[in-house]
């Protein structure tokens, strides 16, 4: 699930001969971002002052082997002028401690910036964050909110490496890394809710949504998928399209799934179970209601 515009960058995984007695911190090779971090970044961007070109903040997350999972982020104050760049380090520390108390597993993995241009100041800030994340390299996630003309909204991630004969903090190369959106399966419905809300004309949706509605939506989408498959299969049969054996096999596996447990006997017993449960639930509810009312009754 790539996030952001396609790039032609080659992601090189250096598997250098490392000394096993001294495991060097590995360079991250892929980044995943939780929606919360993205949403916080966009919210921060929205709340910037007029004088701010871009906003920056700290990314918190978890490191697994070569992969960095960005779980959340918070805004950090900074100022950029022609002469200098300043980052409020004390603020950064305070916020990190506050976050650390709630989710102790998350550590500083890097920083984010909005907009897509990288400059000397980016290198300086990167240098600062590298000290924070040492011995691991810091990552930079650059979020393009899509407000600049001619540039698509998207997310790109970088790690840095020093460049030049003498390493200087303001000199570094930003190496692009693949970045993906990732969330837990249980959170999927929340993301669906948000994308559904975003695509509605008024940008709002009311809660709570009935379960039936959600099922209906899913059924509709299954229906559409079936139509698409049908059109494809008919196209192939009619000779209009060239058949792909792989697709055919996938279709066979998917649609040929056994429905034996839904045979008549199974269906009926399962139906009875469900009806009993429904009856029980209603019984319990009415008992509870009666009990609550009886407590209010007074002797005549």
């Amino acid at each position: 699930m790539p996030l952001g515009p396609p790039s032609s960058a080659i992601h090189i995984h250096s598997q250098g001969a490392s000394d096993p007695s001294q495991p060097a911190p590995r360079t991250p090779t892929s980044i995943t971002i939780h929606p919360v971090a993205l949403l916080s970044i966009l919210d921060h961007y929205l709340r910037r002052t007029d004088s701010q070109e871009r906003v920056i903040g700290t990314l918190l997350g978890v490191r697994n082997d070569n992969e960095i999972e960005v779980r959340s982020s918070f805004a950090v104050l900074h100022s950029e002028t022609d002469e200098q760049v300043a980052v409020d380090m004390e603020y950064h520390r305070t916020m990190y401690e506050l976050h650390h108390k709630v989710s102790p597993k998350e550590v500083i993995v890097g920083w984010y910036s909005t907009g897509s241009n990288l400059n000397t100041y980016s290198a300086l800030i990167q240098n600062f964050y590298s000290q924070e994340t040492a011995p691991h390299p810091a990552i930079l996630v650059s979020v393009n909110a899509g407000v600049e003309e001619g540039k698509e909204a998207g997310v790109t991630a970088y790690t840095s490496s020093p460049v030049g004969v003498y390493p200087k903090p303001e000199n570094c190369v930003f190496i692009p890394l693949p970045v993906e959106l990732r969330f837990h399966d249980a959170e999927r419905s929340g993301v669906d809710l948000l994308t559904g809300t975003a695509s509605s004309p008024s940008s709002t949706s009311s809660q709570p949504v009935a379960d039936v509605e959600i099922i209906e939506r899913s059924l509709h989408s299954v229906d559409n998928m079936l139509d698409r498959v049908l059109a494809y299969v008919q196209g192939v049969l009619a000779g209009g399209k060239e058949g792909d054996a792989a697709i055919g096999r996938y279709l066979m596996d998917t649609l040929g799934a056994a429905t034996e447990d839904l045979e008549k006997g199974g269906f009926n017993s399962s139906l009875q179970d469900t009806l009993t449960i429904s009856y029980l639930a209603n019984l319990v509810r009415s008992q509870a209601e009666v009990s609550a009312r009886l407590a209010l009754a007074t002797a005549p």
Binding site: L3, A145, G146, L181, L194, A198, S199, S203, S205
Partner: peptide, 17 residues
């Protein structure tokens, strides 16, 4: 209760989805 997405987010989510 209503859920709201701001326009910036709407466009971003639309792009992603």
């Amino acid at each position: 209760l209503k859920i709201r997405t701001n326009p910036l987010l709407s466009s971003f989510l639309g792009k992603v989805a």
